[in-house]
């Protein structure tokens, strides 16, 4: 039916859902079944594993040889803490000498990861988001992958959460969770001035959310934080990051000159895009940490 269409037309109709390029069911029913390979003979690894003593001895031998070789390498490495070693090279020295002038951040590491190497950090945030989405795909509860016993367990959990049976945890979390989250926000906002930044501060915020959720139960958490909130916050932050960095790449590479003012180094509102980028990364990390917790314990955010 699609012989006389060009490849692009077929692709377009496939994307629109009008046509199926390969009918999977038909393909599976007509394909030739391969001869089953006997694993016992084909995979020698399997035979090796079945011989448990030999396998263990080989593993230990390989690891010991590996450690010995690596220790020999360590002997030839530059000495620990040597100021003239090869690891102290011109790249790091340039970050130290001109970092404040070029990025405006007092914390050289923040200046490095969010200005000189911002693209790398963008990739990291994306990796975190992809991880939480992948875990969501694998672990989200629905009717197909839960048994009646699990459903009953969840219902019991909900009843337990709504009772006053864990009073100490609830009172403790009521006192501690706001402080923990506030501290996380402080670490994120001061990322360019002091140790910390988006990743560490985001983890602290995530820990606060986890504490609150553990004490008060999933139901109460869902009144303000659902899977929709998680994806919306993460996507908005990643898009903001992308937009900010695209702007500075574009203006910087073309020498347009509309640079973001760096401000006075040391002030809270300084160092150009580093503060908004830290906030973006912090929110993504906080959502990811809480998302992992919620998906692994309850199977839903």
């Amino acid at each position: 039916m699609s012989e006389n269409k060009s490849f692009w037309q077929r692709l377009k109709s496939w994307i629109d859902g009008e046509e199926i390029l390969i009918d999977a069911d038909k393909y599976i029913s007509t394909r030739e079944r391969k001869e089953r390979v006997s694993y016992e003979k084909a995979v020698s690894m399997e035979r090796l594993r079945s011989n448990s003593t030999l396998y263990r001895v080989l593993c230990v031998a390989i690891t010991v040889i590996f450690i010995a070789v690596m220790l020999r390498v360590v002997i030839d490495l530059p000495m620990f803490g040597d100021p003239n070693g090869v690891t102290v090279n011109e790249v790091g020295q340039r970050y130290l000498e001109q970092g404040i002038e070029e990025t405006g951040a007092i914390n050289f590491v923040a200046g490095m990861i969010l200005d000189y190497r911002a693209f790398d950090t963008f990739g990291e945030s994306n990796v975190l988001f992809m991880a939480v989405i992948a875990v969501l795909m694998l672990l989200q509860r629905d009717k197909k992958n839960t048994s009646a016993a699990e459903d009953q367990e969840m219902a019991e959990d909900e009843v337990f959460d709504s009772q006053d049976s864990k009073l100490i945890l609830k009172k403790g979390a009521k006192c501690l969770a706001p402080v923990v989250i506030l501290y996380g926000i402080y670490v994120v906002l001061n990322g360019h001035l002091s140790p910390g930044g988006g990743f560490s501060g985001g983890s602290i915020i995530g820990a606060g959310l986890i504490l609150y959720s553990a004490a008060n139960g999933q139901k109460k958490m869902q009144t303000f934080f659902t899977i929709k909130t998680l994806t919306r916050i993460s996507v908005a932050c990643l898009l903001t990051y992308c937009g900010c960095k695209s702007y500075s790449f574009f203006t910087g590479a073309n020498h347009v000159g509309w640079e973001i003012p760096k401000g006075t180094p040391g002030a809270i509102l300084s160092s150009g895009f580093i503060l908004p980028l830290n906030i973006c990364v912090g929110l993504v990390v906080a959502c990811t940490m809480y998302g992992f917790y919620a998906l692994f314990t309850k199977g839903e955010v």
């Binding site: 130290l96 404040i100 050289f108 590491v109």
Partner: peptide
């Protein structure tokens, strides 16, 4: 590196 401080001004 011996004797140096963390990279924060």
């Amino acid at each position: 590196v011996f004797g140096r401080v963390a990279p924060i001004l």
